[in-house]
Design a protein around this nucleic acid. Structure first.
Lengths: 185, 185
DNA sequence: CGGTTCGTTCAGTCAATACCGAACTAACTG
DNA sequence: CAGTTAGTTCGGTATTGACTGAACGAACCG
C-alpha cells in the first residue's frame, strides 16, 4: 500500500466539500483538498498524494494549498529526513476562520456608517433604512465576537502547549507508513 | 424633477454595495439596486427609475429584483391608481437574512456529521478532525440562532402591526412626487 | 380596435477564472 | 557531474455566468 486511498463514499464527501467551497466563493479543488485532509490517514499528506488521490493536476494542488495555508485552514509540516512537505488541516483554524468572517461583517457596518454620514442632514426616514441595516450587522458582529472569544479560550485551554501564544509545532509521530519509496511511475 | 437622482458620492456608495454583494456571491447589479433603494427618496422606486438611475438594462433590473424579493431583501408594493410596481428594501429583512445564513451553517454541520458517520469505526484521531470542524460550526450555529431570536423579538416589538405574525403591509403615504407622468421617452 | 407602457424571457456576447500541461527552478542523490 | 524528485509558475483553454438587446406578452388608454 503506497498511499492513502479513500473509499467511494469518502470521495463523495470530498466532492461535497468541493461544492460547499465553490458555493462559498472558493474553488472546488480547494474544497476537495480540505475534504481529503479531513478524512485521510495519516492526517498529513504530500502534494503528490493529493494529486493521485483526487485526480487533479499538480499545479492546482500547489496553488490551492498555498491559498489554504494563507487562509489558515491548512498547515505545512515537515518530517526529519524527508525532503517533501506535508500538509494537514490546521489544528487551530477556527479562531482564524471566525475572525475572517468577522472582518466581512465589519465591512458591512462600515458601509452603513458611510451611508449614514452621507445622509447626515437627510430625513429621519431615509436614515432609518441604513440605521436598520447597521443595527442588524452590529448585532451579528456582537454575537460573533463573543463566539470568537469562546473559541480562542477553548483552543488555549485544550492545547497547553509552550508558553508562547501560538502553540508551536507539535510532534509528529513517526508514521513511517507514508514514508516509503514509490518506484512506480 | 422626474425621478430620484443620487449624488456622485451616493452613487459611489451604491458601487460599494455592488462590490460587497459580488464578493458575497451575489451579483454586482443586485448590490447596486440594494444600495440605491437604501438611499433613494422616496424609499419606493419603479424598475424604470432604477434603470435610469443606475444605467443598467431593464432585463437585469427585472431579474435582480425578483431575485432580491425571493431572498426577502426587497419587497414589492403597489400604489392605488398606478399600474407600475414599486420596490423598496424590506422592512423586516433581517430575520429572514439571518435565517438564510444559518441554513448555510446547518449544511456545514450536516457535512461534518456525514463524515463522522462514515468514520464511525475509524481511529479517534481521524474522527477528531471532523469533530473539531463540527464543534466550531455548532458553536457558530448556536450564537446565530440566539441572534436570530433577538432580531425576531425586536421586529415583533418594534412593529405592533395586526395580530397576525407577519405584520402585514403598512400604509404607504401618498407621496405624489414619484407619481407623475413622464411623457419624455 | 391600434397604440403606449410595464414587465418578463431568451439567446447571444463578453469577461472572469478555474483548471491544466509543460516548462522551469531548486534541492537532493549517486 | 548527470539524474531524480518536489514544487512553483506561466500560457492557454474551456467553462461559467453576469449582463444586455430585442422580441415578446399583458394590461391599460383612446
Amino acid at each position: 500500500m503506497l498511499h492513502t486511498v479513500l473509499s467511494e463514499a469518502e470521495l463523495q464527501l470530498c466532492e461535497a466539500f468541493g461544492r460547499l467551497f465553490e458555493d462559498g466563493g472558493s474553488t472546488r479543488i480547494a474544497g476537495r483538498v480540505v475534504g481529503w485532509l479531513m478524512l485521510c490517514d495519516p492526517p498529513h499528506q504530500t502534494q503528490a498524494e493529493l494529486v493521485q488521490g483526487l485526480g487533479v493536476s499538480k499545479a492546482s494542488v500547489s496553488t490551492e494549498l498555498r491559498q489554504l495555508e494563507l487562509r489558515g485552514m491548512v498547515e505545512r509540516i515537515t518530517l526529519p529526513g524527508d525532503r517533501r512537505s506535508y500538509y494537514r488541516v490546521a489544528i487551530d483554524a477556527w479562531p482564524e476562520l471566525m475572525a475572517r468572517r468577522l472582518r466581512v461583517i465589519d465591512r458591512c457596518v462600515a458601509l452603513a456608517d458611510e451611508g449614514l454620514a452621507l445622509l447626515e442632514h437627510a430625513s429621519d426616514e431615509r436614515r432609518a433604512r441604513l440605521a436598520g441595516l447597521r443595527h442588524g450587522y452590529v448585532r451579528l458582529q456582537a454575537v460573533m465576537r463573543a463566539a470568537l472569544e469562546e473559541l480562542r479560550a477553548e483552543t488555549r485551554a485544550g492545547r497547553p502547549g509552550p508558553a508562547s501564544g501560538k502553540a508551536g509545532k507539535r510532534t509528529v509521530k513517526a508514521s513511517k507508513a507514508s514514508h516509503e519509496k514509490r518506484s512506480k511511475r
